[in-house]
């Protein structure tokens, strides 16, 4: 059987809210080492990869590898019934056709149980090679969210260019153009406001803002977002959940028309 309990149930709620508009349904794969998901959006332009480590859970048991297909909209409906402070326990029997979610209030006075029907989902798994990137930028997640939102009111795509001192986000549209530059700032007083750039090679790539806006829905998960860029390769937009795992988004670059 599979059984996992997470004390910060709000975290699971945030993860599902971050991906439910991008992917319709997905298989949640569970094994000894943890709980993971990999899925492409319906137009196969972007890829979501979630991994939550077994030791990030308060209790974790997975007797045999299971793959549980769920419709994200339905999972979201159920998790919306959990309080942000609730502990959440997920349970499923081997070869079972449902997963049970148990929500427990911090004072343990209210205990709720919801069963979600599992589905058979055909999904293609892609191998993501470990790579060294031309540039890695770590910036406050809220800052990134604001940048992609603001630029979306001007254009459809953003050129992200990274040099050793700064990262620039630029767009052009019918009404004009916009450029936002963030300088490297390894602020020690307020680590949550730091912007760090690690660069092997200056790089500039163009991406669809619509997808970056969608990825930014993961902002509540983490103080910082990490952007990894290499020439002609997909961007990685990564949110780290301390002590628990990561949610990564991959987006193919736009090519010159």
């Amino acid at each position: 059987m599979f059984e996992a309990r997470i004390a910060q149930g709000g975290l699971l709620k945030k993860v599902v809210e971050a991906i439910k508009d991008l992917i319709e349904d997905a298989n949640f794969d569970c094994n000894n080492s943890g709980f993971s998901l990999q899925a492409m959006d319906s137009s196969h332009v972007s890829l979501v990869a979630l991994s939550l480590r077994a030791d990030g859970f308060e209790h974790y048991r997975c007797d045999r590898n299971v793959s549980m297909g769920m419709k994200l909209a339905n999972l979201s409906k159920i998790l919306k019934c959990a309080g942000n402070e609730d502990a959440i326990t997920m349970k499923s029997e081997d070869n079972g056709d449902t997963i049970t979610f148990m929500f427990e209030t911090p004072n343990q006075e209210r205990l709720s149980e919801f069963d979600l029907k599992l589905m058979d989902i055909d999904s293609e798994h892609l191998g993501i090679p470990e790579a060294e990137y031309d540039a890695t930028v770590k910036l406050p997640a809220g800052e990134f969210q604001r940048i992609v939102k603001d630029l979306s009111s001007i254009g459809d795509t953003v050129e992200i260019s990274v040099t050793k001192d700064a990262v620039k986000f630029g767009t052009t549209g019918d009404i004009g153009s916009a450029n936002i530059m963030c300088r490297q700032n390894k602020s020690v007083d307020k680590p949550e406001e730091s912007t760090e750039i690690d660069i092997n090679e200056p790089v500039a790539l163009t991406f669809a803002l619509r997808y970056l806006n969608s990825f930014a829905k993961a902002t509540p998960l983490s103080t910082h977002v990490v952007l990894k860029l290499s020439k002609d390769l997909p961007i990685v937009v990564e949110y780290h959940v301390p002590d628990v795992g990561r949610l990564g988004f991959y987006l193919a670059p736009k090519v010159e028309e």
């Binding site: 492409m40 137009s43 196969h44 332009v45 191998g127 991959y250």
Partner: peptide, 14 residues
């Protein structure tokens, strides 16, 4: 989505 490449063009199926 003009000029947009598919993500599966970059990563091989497992």
């Amino acid at each position: 989505l003009a000029g947009q490449r598919s993500i599966s063009a970059f990563f091989a199926a497992k």
